[in-house]
Structures are given as C-alpha cells and as structure tokens.
Amino acid sequence: MFFAGLDIGSTITKVVIKNEKKICATVIKPTGAEHRRLAHKVMEDALSKAGVPFEDVDYIIATGYGRINVPFADRQVTEITCHMRGVNWLFPAVKTIIDIGGQDSKGIKVENGKLVNFIMNDKCAAGTGRFLEIIAGVLGVKLEEIGELSLKSTRPSDISNMCTVFAEQEALLRLSEGTPVEDILAGIHKANASRIHSMVKKIKIEPEVAITGGGAKNRGLCKALEEKVGFPVVVPPEPLITGALGAALIAGEQIAKIDKEELQERQKKRRLEAVTFFDDESTKAR
C-alpha cells in the first residue's frame, strides 16, 4: 500500500510518498505564483521517483496553503496538524514546534502525539521567510547565504523596527552608515527571532523544541531563536518536508479506517489534474 502527503506551501511544494515501512520518495519544488497550479506535476515527479504508478496510491492527503482544491486528494488536513505529526514521528520527545514558512510562522504544541494548541502570525511579513527575503534583497545578499553570513557578526546592529517596510529602511540606513553587512544581518535575525519567539511564547514554550519550515534551513535564525528560547532546539534533517510527511502518515492511518471497496472507488475517481485555488486570481493565472 502506498500513501502520499502533498504540502502546497506559499513558496514551496513538497511531496512525500510512503508505504507501511518507509519513505519511498520526497520531492521539494519551488512553486511561485505561476507554478502553484502545477502541483500535480510535482506529484508526478515524486511518483516516478518512487516508481509508483498513480493508480497504486491508496490515499492522498493535501495540506498547506494550497490544500483546498486539490482534485486528486482524498482529504485535506491543515499544515498545523501535519507538521505536528511529521515532527512527532521524527522526534517523539518534541513538545513545541516552531514552523517558519514563507508567508507565515506558527507555534504548535504537541502532547502524546496530539495537537493541543497552536498560534499563527497575523497577516504580516514580520517573523516570516518573506521578511528575510526582502532584507536579503535590500542588502544584495543571496537568501541562502544570509544565515551563515549573520553568524560571522561580532557586533549585531540594533534593528528596532519589525515592520518590514521600516526595517528595510533601517537596514539601508545602517548600510549607509558603513555598518558591516554581517552585523546588519545578525541584527535582522535577532529581531526576527524575537518576533517569532514572542508569538510562540503565548502557547508556552516547553522542551524539546523543533524548528521546521524554510526558516529552519537558516542557521543564523536557528541560533538566534535558540538564544531566545534559552535551550537547544532540534532541526529535522530536511525541515521542509515535515508537513508532507505528516500528511502521508495521516493518510496511512486513514486507509485502515476505510474498507477496500470504498478505497477502490476513490482511486477510480481520482484525477491527477491541476489544482484550483480559492482566490480567483491565482486560479486564473497561468
């Protein structure tokens, strides 16, 4: 039996294909606005990588920002529950998950493998990957490099403003004053970590703590967060896929709850087609 988790994030789409024993394939593809509808292509990639024909997949769960209208998914589950499940499978001792995505960040509390509480940032780029992306752009540094670069700083500069627009101005100002880029970046990471930390604090941070999502790939951010949290945090080997992995795990459980006939019925109906979006514009955009 095969089951799949598909996590359509705001910037990256991830697929995990599993069977009862192991992960058969994972695929991570950037999905900008124009590619978002093409999530089925990412699924195709994963299937061919796993060597599993589409018809053989028994259950598919879609999660993430784009989960709503995936025609080939059996069910949609929020990324919050999926991250929780994925992390819990990897690190059973984790109680607090900090997920830093492209457009939002979240805090998730786990107890005995169950989701007990969560919090999300409030429609603002501060505390998200987008924030770092904008600042990287302003400073002319590649997004992948800002974390490492920030770690070289000896004197993190003070960034007081967390509004993205103002922080951008502040970063520019520091630059014009001759502050080294690594110090500005260290300041930005500190500010971002502080923002995320104060949000997650609302649901009480208890060890162990895991960081997931694109932000977990940024070592500078992880270190800044770790300092704020006050104890070491764990980062999954591939922090981007915990959502898709969790979705695949839940898909595996669902199969057990459904009888064979219905499963076959579902399989027949399933179409590996383009994803539609709830907002018209993204749906129409090609």
């Binding site: 929020t78 990324e79 529950t81 989701l115």
Partner: peptide
C-alpha cells in the same frame, strides 16, 4: 476579503 486566510486556524482548531 480577509476571511479565507483564517480557514487554516479554524480547521486546525477543529483538528485539535
């Protein structure tokens, strides 16, 4: 216009 962004919270709460 700003409602749909709240869906994940309600769904996750329902899942909780």
């Amino acid at each position: 216009a700003a409602l749909e962004t709240l869906r994940t919270r309600f769904q996750a709460f329902a899942e909780t």
